[in-house]
Design a protein around this nucleic acid. Structure first.
Lengths: 187, 187
DNA sequence: CGGTATCGATACTTCTAGTAGCGAAATCTC
DNA sequence: GAGATTTCGCTACTAGAAGTATCGATACCG
């Protein structure tokens, strides 16, 4: 990929590289206290930075959590040569694995709830978290946007609902059932 | 059904019949302002009652919203003679219709998020809202508890995720797809 | 050294969940 | 009707959280 000349460094003191610590502290705190009680104050303290430093980077708690989710989920693993069924199955298992990680489900559900009544946050969530996966899947599966969005709703919605109702991640047998159901429908 | 002798009325001033007004005001307020900004103060004002009166009936905001959801969803419509597929399909469409009603999705997602980090609320939500439907479906479909819970996760999770991501209820074509997918798997 | 932007710290405003206390009103029992 | 009991609306309050403002100190550039 052609890379433009390295962007000129802006003047002033450069920002410290604290994103990793902040993200880790965020997930740790959300896991221990839940989305509501994971205050920005506490997250900042857990990360060893000042609250104002966090607000200088992310405009709101919801934006911080979303950035944290983007970082934690990471790219969808797609092996070259995977069949259509294998792509779908591995995407589902990928989602299940991630959502089972400490704090991730609570963080996701929290930002998600706020998004229902906050169009700005919904925009951030949709663009930064959902779109990357959607675009990859549209490309790889050759499906329409509507179709892939439906797929994402089913998979993420199901996994999150289980976490919300039971407080525990979905067991393997149910993940297998989800894979089987979706693959037999979309495959 | 054998009914015990009418319970003796407790002494003191009887409670006013305000549940309907409070529930309506709750959904109206949540629809307008979202779960987070639908404060108990505002709900009370919209219902024309004092905030303390609300807290005398429901122990927390989450419990109020849950009671409101139980009231708004109502019983699952099952026609005698319905086939297995028809029961599943009508249950899904029932859920889609309800969740599309103003305020319901936001209320549901909000209480749901709080439940992830609040075991007491999770207990209320599970017992009062989910169990009635689960028991009916176990009975009618002759499926195990695990199987029916999986079904509920898929249907409600999918519908809620769509509302959270788009702010709009799922369109008919996608509800049809959901019905087809689930029926072909469970039917 | 001068300019600029970040860092940590503290203090502050605004808003919300939930509680306490009070006088007034409603209902039952005697 | 009198007394007991409980609810009602109202006001005031506490505790906690999101987000902002300010300030001295610090890091980097030219």
């Amino acid at each position: 990929m052609a890379r433009a000349t390295t962007p000129p460094r802006p003047p002033g003191r450069p920002r410290a590289g604290i994103d990793a610590e902040v993200f880790a502290a965020t997930l740790r705190t959300v896991d221990e206290l839940g989305y509501t009680h994971a205050t920005v104050d506490r997250i900042a303290a857990a990360a060893g930075v000042a609250k104002t430093t966090i607000y200088r980077r992310w405009p709101s708690k919801g934006a911080l959590i979303t950035a944290c989710l983007v970082d934690a989920f990471g790219p969808l693993p797609i092996k070259a040569g995977d069949s259509r069924e294998e792509v779908i199955a591995s995407a589902i298992r990928f989602g299940a694995l991630r959502i089972a990680e400490p704090g991730l489900a609570a963080a996701f559900a929290g930002v998600f709830t706020d998004a229902i009544s906050d169009p700005e946050l919904r925009e951030i969530l949709s663009t930064q978290l959902q779109d990357p996966y959607r675009l990859v899947l549209q490309e790889v599966l050759g499906e329409s946007e509507q179709r892939v969005l439906f797929f994402v709703d089913v998979v993420i919605g199901t996994l999150l609902h289980r976490m919300g109702m039971t407080g525990e991640p979905m067991v393997k047998a149910d993940v297998d059932a989800l894979v089987e159901m979706v693959v037999s429908y979309l495959g």
